[in-house]
């Protein structure tokens, strides 16, 4: 039973609020004064996307999407560590 309308449960409204906060954070990604500000904004947006995928998988009863959320979280971790390493390297030279 896949529900067509997203807004019949409070979790659907939760997805909308998460999308709204991601749009607010896009300001920090686009106009951040320095490079670490943009990285902070990107990491926060990725965590919100993981939560959105988990909520959609439970609402629409497509449970294979939970695996995809786990994989996206791990990719976020590796990407954040590589960007932090890049910042550290670039400051020295």
């Amino acid at each position: 039973m896949v529900e067509e309308n997203l807004l019949v449960t409070p979790f659907g409204w939760g997805v909308l609020i998460l999308i709204f906060t991601s749009i607010l954070l896009t300001y920090r990604v686009l106009f951040g004064p320095t490079l670490p500000d943009r990285i902070v904004g990107l990491n926060t947006i990725t965590t919100k996307v993981v939560i959105i995928i988990a909520i959609l998988s439970v609402i629409g009863r497509r449970y294979f999407l939970v695996d995809l959320a786990v994989v996206l979280l791990m990719v976020n971790a590796v990407g954040g560590l590589i960007l932090a390493k890049y910042l550290e390297r670039r400051g020295k030279g």
């Binding site: 320095t34 490079l35 670490p36 902070v40 932090a84 910042l87 550290e88 670039r90």
Partner: peptide, 10 residues
Amino acid sequence: AIAKGAYKYG
């Protein structure tokens, strides 16, 4: 990791 990198970045 980002905090330490930002400090080393200057």
